[in-house]
Design a protein around this nucleic acid. Structure first.
Lengths: 161, 161
DNA sequence: TATTGTTATACTCTATAACTATA
DNA sequence: TATAGTTATAGAGTATAACAATA
């Protein structure tokens, strides 16, 4: 025992039921993965945590706020402070729709698009680290199995909202 | 288009980078899975969200609070209000250690152990729903791949705390 | 009547720092 | 000095309900 401390409980017993639960393991893994992601992102302000959102805006320029909220399974009211932050930090801008004056369309700014490319390199590096022990075939299998579970869940369970 | 509304953006484009990211898909899936879990649990007070904790206490009777916090990757201070709730609801009890008077040992109460068995049936039913589209072999593969990603993450990244 | 974006509000979850009592 | 548990506190992150403007 090098520098580990003597613990009161000799060894933690992890119940088999938890180790064999997809829901539970997904939950633990997501927590660990997200923590490491946030710590590995050096800067870029608050953008890293909204990387998925920014990529969706990039791929769907001018998307209305409510569509964007649905795309990331958030209530539209929850998106408002996020867009305010990303606007303040210069990542996105909102423009009133000319055809429907209720709608505000979300775009990346020029600087936002450029910085997103740099941020993407870091995100890719993290993903590479996370999947370093998987062969490409194994990674493809994992993504396929996750997608099938997701499909089952959303079929049995509305919009997940 | 039966009852779907006309949307402003014809079709949402999901960037390939997100669809091919294990981190991102794990994150989305965890959110959907946890929401459906919480809604499917009929009652049992606040115990369902602490099911994992309760199973660990069951498998490690008398575990000190700090060990328990580590087991679920929480700060020990975050565990305090959780144990207060679970104590108030009759699931667990804390007893001062006789050998180290700083330590409080956590146990399931008799009622807690009995109710946990019933709660477990519901948790199992949810897990069955989630994995309904997977063969046993596929589920085993998924758990194996998740465990390997988790191992990589924790190797590159301390205690995840 | 219904939808979009917004605001006000509250709730949950978590961490940090400082404290106490013990070791 | 270090550890176990606690408290006070603050910061994310999210949802609900109600509102004004517009459809």
């Amino acid at each position: 025992m090098p520098e580990t401390l003597m613990r009161d409980v000799a060894e933690l017993t992890v119940p088999g039921m938890l180790q064999n639960s997809v829901s539970y393991q997904i939950r633990l893994l997501q927590i660990a993965s997200y923590k490491s992601f946030e710590q590995q992102m050096s800067s870029h302000g608050s953008a890293p945590r909204y990387f998925g959102l920014l990529k969706i805006v990039e791929a769907n320029p001018g998307i209305p706020q409510t569509r964007l909220a649905e795309a990331i399974y958030l209530d539209r009211s929850s998106l408002v402070p996020i867009l305010e932050t990303l606007t303040r930090e210069g990542w996105v801008e909102r423009k009133k729709s000319t055809t429907d004056k209720r709608v505000r369309r979300v775009f990346l700014t020029k600087a936002g698009a450029e910085n997103l490319a740099r941020l993407e390199d870091e995100v890719t590096a993290h993903e590479t680290m996370v999947t370093a022990d998987l062969t490409p075939a194994e990674k493809a299998t994992l993504l396929d199995l996750l997608a099938r579970v997701d499909k089952t869940l959303r079929a049995n369970f509305g919009g997940a909202s």
